[in-house]
């Protein structure tokens, strides 16, 4: 049991790293996509909407298989790691975009119009009126999405990446110590996710207080 701990720690590190990269990139994609939709950029907003629907309505595992096994067959060969990052970003970007968009849309139109009539230009309206309010409204959804993405990384073991699930399965195959390996697997996920989950609940409470002030 002690001997396999370093393997688990390494795998937990990999899971964390992968999700950190995935969450960060989803964040970037999410802001970009939600802004194109929010600002109704011609043509691109339609593409963005289609992207959001496609990514949100298909399972990550299928996306990964399609990327990893499918695209390699038509000449677009990617490493498993790249596939996982691309897949997570593809999925996460759409979820984050929805979170940001609903945040932005929670800002009242009258506020934007008043800001414009005061002479603020478009970027200033975004910067001083929409972002400060919209982003804080989006915070709980963003946290929930981050937690969701961290949990979703568990499927990358299916394309042979050495995350926690993969290590546990590998060790089960090697030593037949099913119970110990699975218990360790659960414990490690708890260590990774419990603090984030608790922090999220606190944040949500804070947000509720904030909204009561309105």
């Amino acid at each position: 049991m002690i001997k396999v701990l370093p393997l688990y720690i390494k795998a937990a590190g990999f899971t964390l790293l992968l999700s950190a990269i995935g969450i960060f990139l989803s964040f970037v994609v999410g802001i970009a996509v939600s802004l194109t939709v929010y600002c109704k950029v011609k043509f691109f907003s339609v593409v963005a909407k289609i992207y959001i629907e496609v990514a949100r309505n298909t399972p990550l595992l299928i996306q990964l298989f399609f990327l990893y096994f499918g695209f390699s067959r038509i000449g677009l060969r990617m490493e498993a790691y790249t596939c996982a990052v691309v897949g997570l970003t593809f999925l996460g970007g759409a979820y984050m975009a929805e979170a940001f968009r609903s945040g932005f849309e929670s800002v009242d139109v009258s506020q934007k119009e008043s800001a414009q009539s005061l002479g603020l230009n478009f970027l200033q309206v975004l910067r001083f009126v929409v972002f400060p309010q919209g982003l804080s409204v989006a915070v709980p959804a963003i946290c929930a999405n981050s937690l969701f993405l961290l949990k979703e990384t568990s499927v990358v073991s299916a394309i042979a990446l050495a995350d926690l699930v993969y290590v546990a399965k590998d060790l089960i195959g090697l030593h037949y110590k099913t119970t110990e390996c699975l218990i360790l697997l659960v414990i490690f996920y708890l260590i990774l996710l419990l603090p984030i989950s608790i922090y999220m609940r606190k944040l949500e409470k804070k947000m509720r207080f904030a909204s009561h002030g309105v």
């Binding site: 949990k151 499927v155 399965k169 989950s197």
Partner: peptide, 23 residues
């Protein structure tokens, strides 16, 4: 709620499929 929510579903599936049935 927290126990179910925090553990990824894939892990739950493994635990039930390999472990609960065996125990």
């Amino acid at each position: 709620l927290d126990a179910i929510r925090i553990i990824p579903i894939l892990v739950l599936l493994f635990v039930f499929y390999f472990e609960i049935t065996r125990v």
